[in-house]
Design a protein around this nucleic acid. Structure first.
Lengths: 138, 138
DNA sequence: ATTTGACTTAGACAATGTCCAGGGTAGGAT
DNA sequence: ATCCTACCCTGGACATTGTCTAAGTCAAAT
């Protein structure tokens, strides 16, 4: 985590209380928080922090590749601090819970050239959907 | 297309001018329209149609399984009339263009039981990302 | 200690989607 | 053909999420 702060400083990030707090929140719980959830937790540590700053900081972390944006539905984007180990997501269709998963196989290799339509394909996201144990039993 | 209308009528759908227009728009161009784009095209055919009705109708079509919802980013959801042939999506990271693709392999089988965390997994979406030819050359 | 430009703030704004009360109508019943 | 009624549509208010801006603040280089 101080790793993260070090990396960011090394990249010319100006270190501010706000940015430190956002980074701490993301690193603290390895769950997939929405921007508003990050904001709520950040406010608990630094009451004056503004919503705009949280959005800005999350955007910068995404640009820097330190955090991944996950869009599983039309609600809020979620932020995944686990950016350095490739993985995919398993989402509960009912409650929205997300788990990181590591399928076997390589989906990138499964897209033949004839199915690429001239695109430069650089990334694949695989999203598994289903019901989590508690939603399935309800 | 009248297939579609027939199927819907058979399921007890009350047929109205508004619903017919929405179905026609979706069936007319097999592209991935946003709700607002559907609304714009619907208004061209039936000027009084309201936004709420378009949203409602799209939602019903999704529930009935006639249309798929595609969420590739935090902008608008898109609606895919190609609900009856399984496929995945290739998205341009710059301009948002979407193509249907058919990768080989079976990603569902690539998720071992140990990675399912007790979820009842029912579906997989694979989203390839890259740059479309025109965005890549710009 | 000074300086400077990057950072933060509050709040207005934008985009998308949802909800509601009231009026309208499709399609079955007569 | 007409009537009824449950279902549908409308317009607009509202909610959620995210973006932008102008002005003030502060980290860090000097």
């Amino acid at each position: 985590m101080s790793d993260l702060l070090e990396r960011l400083r090394g990249r010319g990030w100006r270190m501010t209380a706000q940015r430190r707090v956002v980074a701490e929140v993301l690193d603290g719980e390895h769950v997939h928080l929405t921007a508003d959830e990050v904001h709520a937790r950040a406010v608990a540590k630094l009451p004056e922090i503004s919503r705009a700053t949280v959005y800005n900081t999350l955007g910068e972390l995404v640009t820097l590749g330190e955090v991944l944006e996950v869009t599983t539905d039309k609600r809020a984007k979620r932020y995944d601090p686990n950016a350095h180990r490739p993985h995919h997501h398993l989402v509960c269709a009912r409650c929205g819970a997300i788990r990181d998963v590591h399928p076997t196989g390589n989906p990138l290799a499964d897209l033949p050239d004839t199915e690429r339509f001239g695109f430069t394909v650089s990334d694949v996201e695989v999203t598994y959907r289903g019901l989590c144990p508690s939603c399935a039993s309800a």
